[in-house]
Design a protein around this nucleic acid. Sequence first.
DNA 1: AAAGTGTGTAACAATCGCACTTGCATACTC
DNA 2: GAGTATGCAAGTGCGATTGTTACACACTTT
Lengths: 148, 148
Amino acid sequence: MPTSSRFAVAVHVLATITLRDGAPARSEDLAYTASTGAVVIRALLSRLNSAGLTTSQLGSGGGALLAKPAEQIRLLDVYEAVEDTELFTTHRTPPCKDCAVGASILEAMQPSLDQARAAFENELARVTVAEIAAEVVRIGHITLPLTW
Amino acid sequence: MPTSSRFAVAVHVLATITLRDGAPARSEDLAYTASTGAVVIRALLSRLNSAGLTTSQLGSGGGALLAKPAEQIRLLDVYEAVEDTELFTTHRTPPCKDCAVGASILEAMQPSLDQARAAFENELARVTVAEIAAEVVRIGHITLPLTW
DNA sequence: AAAGTGTGTAACAATCGCACTTGCATACTC
DNA sequence: GAGTATGCAAGTGCGATTGTTACACACTTT
């Protein structure tokens, strides 16, 4: 039930773009700070674009930009844009329908799992990319605007 | 990230043992209701044994038993006994320490991630195996004691 | 004590998703 | 038009999960 590293990297990328304050961020530069490859970042940005969180400018001087203010991007939005898998994985092959327990175990568990997921998502909805970016500035004593 | 079905299967197994009401459950039978192999179940039970949730009886008529009342086994206990990975996965290779954002992004995110995880775990701590087993009985109109 | 039963564990194959890399087409800016 | 940056396809490597076979060990029953 773990997340991929995409979520953490996506938050990293979005915080970085936020602190660029309007200057486009190239995928190659983003890849450098995130210690990964430019193609990985572009795949990530492709998901963020589809979710309406970022846009991309082609050509010289281009790069990634936020599609809306960082204050309006919640970590939950990032999570949903980037994660494919469900928080809870059930039986690889469905349980035996002819067994007393197997026939209803999934239905019996579902409300509890849904509540756990809801609590999880509520917390991610309470934090924005802007707040993460502010924390980065506070912790790292960064002087804005961010170059690299 | 590849996700594990162990948690769902473990709850299934524990609920089944609960409804057996003291009669040992063989790994082979547990494997049948869970639509998997006996060795998979035994590996699962090995973890549950180590966590003090179940015990095993060898020999003829043997099988798995609860180590304590089902009312005292929380879903959180099962989760911790069975899941290896962290809820959030961070960068595969740590972010660039020489970059303004890379140097502090993990520290900046951590409080938020911890809160989400805590909320998630709190919900799992509120439900017991006994309650799941009772739900199975209610939904499936099962007549106790459970045979197979 | 001997036979039968069930667990515990090791070793190996198969599968799947993630991450990385290369290469190239496409689109935009200067 | 030259240069730059994204978008995407294809193939590799890796690790975790799951499934399978095999076998040693321990306990119960007769």
